[in-house]
Amino acid sequence: MIHFESNPQPKMLILYASYGDGHLQVARALKSAMEELGNFRTVMIDLMAESHPWLNEMTRRFYLKSYTNMPSLYGWMYDFTKPMKHDSWFGGLLHSFGKDKIKRILLAEQPDIVVHTFPSFALPELKRSNGFHPPSYAVITDFDLHCRWVHPSIDRYYVATEDLKQELAKLGISNQAVQVTGIPLKRGFRAAVPSTELYHRYNLNPNNPIILIMAGAQGVMPDAAPICSMLLDDAHVQVVLVCGRNLPLKNTIQQLFQHHSGKSRLCVLGYVDAIHELMALSDCLVTKPGGVTLSEGITAGLPLFIYRPVPGQEKQNAQYLAAKGAASISYEAAELASQILKLVHDPLRLTNSKLSIKRLPSSQTAADSIVLDILSNIRIIEKASTL
Rank of each mutant, 00 (worst) to 15 (best):
Y67S: 13
R128T: 11
R359A: 12
Q364C: 12
Y78A: 03
L93Y: 06
T252L: 15
F118W: 05
N69W: 06
A177G: 12
P124A: 11
S328C: 06
M1R: 13
K31V: 05
L256M: 15
F132Y: 13
G312H: 00
L302C: 05
A17K: 00
N175M: 10
G92I: 00
F97N: 00
L24Y: 03
A33M: 08
K186I: 06
D368P: 02
A300R: 02
L145S: 11
I213H: 06
K342Y: 07
S32A: 15
S261F: 09
L360T: 07
Q313P: 03
G244C: 03
T287A: 08
K342S: 14
Q25P: 03
I370S: 08
D233Q: 15
L13G: 06
S376A: 14
S264Y: 04
F132T: 11
Y16H: 12
Q254M: 14
R379N: 14
I253M: 15
K354Y: 03
T42L: 06
E109W: 03
D233N: 15
L372K: 15
K127P: 02
L341Y: 04
K324L: 02
Q254H: 10
T59M: 00
R41D: 15
V43M: 09
G270Y: 11
G301N: 07
I253D: 06
V240P: 09
V43F: 08
L64G: 00
Y78D: 05
L350Q: 15
D283M: 06
I173T: 13
D112I: 05
S282Y: 01
K358C: 07
D373L: 02
E50H: 14
F257N: 11
N352Y: 11
E296I: 04
K263C: 09
S261D: 10
A160N: 09
P152C: 12
G290E: 02
H23T: 01
T141Q: 02
L37F: 03
W89E: 12
N130M: 04
F40R: 12
Q313F: 01
L266E: 10
I275S: 12
S129T: 14
G312Q: 00
L15Y: 02
P83I: 04
H95W: 00
